[in-house]
Design a protein around this nucleic acid. Structure first.
Lengths: 188, 188, 188, 188
DNA sequence: AATGAATGAGAATTCATTCAT
DNA sequence: CATGAATGAATTCTCATTCAT
């Protein structure tokens, strides 16, 4: 088998897609993405049959990576510390990977995502909450759970935005965000 | 701020723009918007020199209307009640004016808004918080204020989304959202 | 109403389409057709929503014109002369309007024609045969009628091809073709 | 004539080409043809330097096969029967080998055939007519011979089309076609 | 040879904006 | 001013052919 479809190239395209979208927005051209990836315009379609497929795959990949940043860090000597460590890992990831965070949000707010991708993105966060719920923190709240998850998600995004916008005050925003979440999930 | 005298046709176009964008997303065609407004495609451009101008104006108009829905209702027999009434008025407005709420969010997440429009939108909420801060509720928190505002904004949007998605449980989400906000701004 | 959609321009496009297809075959580009018509590439689509629509319309128009060339001439002092005059008018039209004849055949043999257009083309010839059948010649044959019509059609096309290919012998081929048809439809 | 030694792979490609063109029309992809032949897209080009070459070769091959179906059968106890047997063999071949017949016609009406292929196709039928002319039937007609050949060819195609379209009436159309031809070539 | 990924010149169509009427 | 046809650059995707493996 000559010149097998390389996973590297596939990843190059995804990375290029991320870069170009972060730069040009969702109207980024497949031609520009291909150029950024260092391949011919037609080659992009060897790896992704349509632009929409590429966009959806990118969303899933980024969302997976983002979630992974959190999952490993949910440890600490007590529940608050466990959650704090997870939160810090999560938001720091976004503050460092600004492009990825930005692109995730662009995609989420677009009409390009399929139901499946969107569900995947939502599901990606779910295990984390299950983890919190079951093992780490005893949720002391009466909110509808789905709503609580979405609120925390929204707060995390705002926190990440702020951290990215003001790297000099990143830690401050990170902690303020955490306090907010902690307040919400604990009975007071 | 705003524009000079907005005549009927301008407003027709803005209203049509809102309808079509809610239906077709931000890729809505100027031709379709004009048709919805009952005018010729070319006429649109005598009122708004570019599509971007139209979009920005629409954002400002909707954001203004949205804020107005809140401002008048900040009354009640105590601080909590005052804020609750304001909150209810605000979120109910969005739950009823789904189209407008949706379009505001689409625009906010687009790359079409100028710095000025975006600043205007952010400013629109500011007086409300000043009002809260100065007259209604004594904020008992140590957060950076700008962050607090944005968090509450984010929570309000999620609340509105939920209310619009589940009209049958609108009240429940509205109250849950309020409790969240109240928790955040009060010392606990 | 400013600059009304001109019928002249529509006809220009159809004429240009005919010219370019005769020159380049069915793969003729919409861009080339537009250029030949002296309009912008986009303007073509104001008049014909898709290339296929243009092609179908062209077929119908040409087929109509071709049939008209025959219909008026079915006169003469006896049946044979009547039919002969019709035949001559028909084949002469094709010999003179070579481009049109060629394009009709290209379209007929393409996969671009809708059932409707094809049916229209078939129907166009039908009245002529009805005319022959009812008023001009008493068909003395036992063939299935539809088959007879198609055979005559096929013979006419071959005759036209020959006449166009050898203008110097056009009359000879025209008469040979006629004798063939006459032989077929008369009892011998 | 034809090509040197055609190995199995060449023939596989030709057969696949026929199948795919019958299914997808002349816009059939070289990639699809290769897949149908069970080889890699690139391999196709080691056997046929260009798509056009493949198409031309296919035409020649099919036309040869078609002619062969007729040549052997020109026997019978008199001229009419001899020709009738040939005609039957010929049209039956097409009615059975619908795909081949269809592809021959598609190619003939395309702009892909070289002068040479077209000439070959025309020549393929010539010997048959020479045979008819010299040995089987004494043609009693004054037509230009080339024209007569083409007319009979055209009639045969129509007959084949009809037979393929209505297998239940194949025999009827076959005989009607024959009578037509017989009428044309005999003095009346 | 065989493979199938890589190439890049098109091709049809869209759409914000202009401008003749 | 209103109209809507005209414009043409831009966009996604295709496909015959090449070429690295």
């Amino acid at each position: 088998m000559a010149r097998p479809k390389s996973n590297d190239k596939r990843n190059n395209i995804l990375a290029a897609c991320k870069v170009v979208i972060a730069r040009d927005g969702l109207n980024a051209t497949t031609a520009d993405i291909a150029k950024e990836a260092g391949i011919a315009t037609g080659s992009l379609f060897t790896y992704f049959p349509t632009k929409t497929d590429l966009l959806n795959e990118l969303y899933v990949v980024l969302k997976t990576e983002m979630t992974a940043a959190l999952t490993d860090k949910l440890s600490g000597k007590n529940n608050r510390e466990k959650l704090h460590n997870g939160w810090a890992a999560w938001t720091d990831w976004a503050a460092i990977n600004t492009e990825k965070h930005v692109v995730i949000e662009l995609l989420r707010n677009s009409d390009q995502l399929t139901k499946e991708s969107r569900a995947f993105g939502d599901a990606a966060i779910k295990p984390v909450f299950d983890l919190i719920n079951a093992n780490v923190v005893k949720l002391e709240t009466n909110y509808p759970n789905d709503f609580l998850y979405e609120l925390i998600d929204a707060i995390s995004i705002k926190t990440m935005d702020k951290m990215a916008a003001r790297p000099d005050k990143a830690a401050e925003y990170r902690e303020a965000g955490f306090e907010t979440v902690w307040k919400i999930i604990t009975k007071g």
